[in-house]
Design a binder for these strands. Structure first.
Length: 574
DNA sequence: GCCGTTTTCGGCCCGACTGTTTTCAGTCG
């Protein structure tokens, strides 16, 4: 069988073309390729399927020419156009643009004048003072480039949401204590609850911007000030996090929050919408271009409504069709953070956790939850002290006792059963039958072929005692790629069998991802959210799972955790 | 290269900050 290029591979190719065109100075053509790449990145189906229907040109941002290039890529796995472009510039030229402060113009000068096409060569050239003579390069630029290179080498990894969020909230709290500050809000990707964060964006309103800036750049956590202006400053915290602060007046709070929250693509769409009405949207307000009359700005909702859109929740602002739905007034009512009644995946000291069942239960109760599912590891996961069938029955006894003691709270007895490399489970059916909930997960054999992994999961789904597939793709953000698996096939089987897919809320998992969760829902699969907490203070991770669910357009009825424990028990009976 | 409730041609988001200029280009978000 021929292996066709997948959407992601084609996306990468279009991004490369966009970068190369940018260097060549073809600003708008470059933007066209970038836009097409962004759209393709989030398509729910493969380009191959779309091309078979002859509907490539129906994809937003894909016209006659790009459609032809997709076709060529699908048929030949190559692209003559890219080959020609690559011949004009060495590969390393693009890497120069990875350095903060170097864009297409400077990269091209470096290449044309000094024949520099790698970061290493750039470093040498700067140190030898070879850049100084060129227009636009000076002493400061040299310093900035060296710093940019150091930063690049320290790692370009994005920060996990679960790690960045508490730190961002801390900085926000500090700003609230400044007397010159009126309102504070997180903005940017952290407000959209993206799974990873590039930097922390915070918006403040104040009539005394300079005072706020002085306060901000001298916070104890601040290590280095990168930019300090009247309305905008950038600093690095001692843990290397970059924090951007913007200050505006109260009357611009909504417009600024909207602008500063992004995503960039969402904003561009919004501003184009405004333009069509003869208006202009900026971070200060929405105004009529001719008369200069201000139509909205103080709050976000008024801006969306003025544009005849329903309010779009920050988690949806990724230009994945939310603007169209908002125009049609058909956005889903997203599941809310306070609608979680339970946590459907926690560990205890019985396997590799650090707290007792009671401690986890009390911790969850303090968070306002009504139940938890204790799902410790099973026998063959030796590294995690997996439980045998006998252990599980003993644990069940313990759980029954605890439930008699605790009021207004329920501990569900479950297990995270291991799916072995042949697809069988490592706990007998008759024991699984005793459990309130059975999560089946893959913890080994990540390198198996797509067919093998898919078959393993299908076998598990068809086991009548399995309720949930745990962390269905096995990825670890920044650490491990997901295993190869045919998710559409898995979702179809799960829908048919009444098996749920987990959104594992552990910070470096977030698995399923937002887009996959949306795909699952679209295949009529319900989802469960589990913190996968191994100690009490990890129970709060459940919030990250809700964030994924919201970013995946899930409604309360799509998420099992919104059910009361009685109703949940019913749906867990297959 | 794409796209159309201003347009099939002529636009394509908007503004802040920096560094190198002496009025602005480049970069970033």
């Amino acid at each position: 069988m021929v292996d066709y290029l997948n959407n992601l591979e084609i996306t990468q190719i279009f991004y490369e073309i966009a970068n190369l065109l940018e260097i060549k100075g073809h600003k708008f053509r470059s933007r066209a390729y970038r836009r097409a790449a962004q759209t393709i990145e989030t398509l729910p189906e493969t380009l191959l399927d779309i091309s078979k229907r002859g509907e490539l040109e129906k994809i937003p941002g894909v016209g006659f020419n790009i459609a032809a290039k997709i076709q060529e890529l699908l048929e030949t796995e190559k692209l003559k156009y890219l080959k020609r472009l690559r011949r004009e510039f060495p590969k390393g030229l693009l890497s120069l643009m990875e350095i903060e402060g170097i864009g297409p113009k400077k990269a091209l000068i470096l290449y044309r004048k000094l024949n520099i096409d790698s970061i290493d060569e750039l470093e040498v050239a700067v140190k030898q003072g070879k850049l100084r003579d060129f227009k636009g390069f000076g002493e400061k630029t040299e310093k900035n480039i060296l710093r940019g290179i150091a930063m690049f080498r320290r790692g370009q990894e994005r920060i996990l949401l679960g790690y960045a969020l508490p730190i961002a909230v801390k900085v926000k709290d500090m700003l609230e204590m400044c007397s010159a500050v009126k309102k504070v809000s997180l903005a940017g990707s952290i407000r959209r609850r993206k799974e990873t964060i590039g930097d922390i964006d915070i918006l403040v309103t104040s009539e005394e911007a300079l005072k706020v800036m002085d306060y901000f750049v001298t916070l104890p956590q601040v290590n280095r000030v990168m930019v300090q202006g009247e309305t905008k400053s950038t600093v690095f915290l001692s843990n290397d996090f970059k924090v951007d602060l913007r200050v505006v007046e109260d009357r611009s709070f909504g417009a600024a929050l909207q602008y500063f929250t992004g995503s960039k693509e969402h904003n561009i769409q919004l501003r184009e919408l405004a333009l069509k009405k003869g208006w202009k949207l900026s971070e200060y307000d929405l105004q009529d271009k001719k008369s200069g009359r201000i139509l909205a700005g103080e709050n976000e909702k008024s801006i969306y409504n003025a544009l005849e859109l329903d309010y779009v929740e920050p988690e949806l602002r990724e230009n994945r069709g939310e603007i169209k739905k908002a125009l049609e007034k058909k956005l889903p009512r997203l599941v809310r953070y306070n609608e979680m009644r339970g946590d459907l995946h926690v560990h205890t000291e019985w396997s590799d956790g650090f707290n007792t069942i009671q401690e986890m239960a009390m911790g969850a109760k303090r968070l306002g939850l009504e139940y938890i599912a204790v799902c410790d590891h099973s026998e063959t996961l030796r590294v995690a002290h997996g439980l045998s069938g006998e252990d599980l029955l003993r644990q069940l006894e313990k759980v029954r006792n605890i439930n008699r003691e605790i009021e207004e709270f329920t501990v569900l007895q479950g297990v995270e059963v291991n799916i072995k490399t042949d697809g069988s489970l490592d706990i007998e059916d008759q024991i699984l039958n005793e459990m309130d909930i059975v999560i089946a997960s893959i913890h080994s054999g990540f390198k198996q072929s797509k067919e093998q992994v898919t078959d393993r999961l299908l076998t598990a789904i068809h086991n009548e005692y399995v309720n949930v597939i745990g962390h269905p793709t096995g990825r670890l953000i920044n650490r491990r790629e997901p295993y190869q698996v045919d998710l559409p096939k898995i979702f179809d089987a799960a829908a048919e069998q009444g098996v749920f897919m987990e959104i594992n809320a552990f910070p470096n998992r977030l698995d399923l991802s937002d887009i996959h969760s949306q795909n699952a829902k679209d295949s009529n699969v319900k989802l469960t959210i589990g913190s996968d907490a191994h100690k009490i203070d990890q129970l709060g991770f459940i919030e990250l799972g809700v964030a994924v669910a919201r970013r995946g357009w899930l409604r309360p009825e799509d998420v099992c955790n919104t059910l009361t424990v009685e109703k949940l028990k019913k749906v867990l009976r297959r």
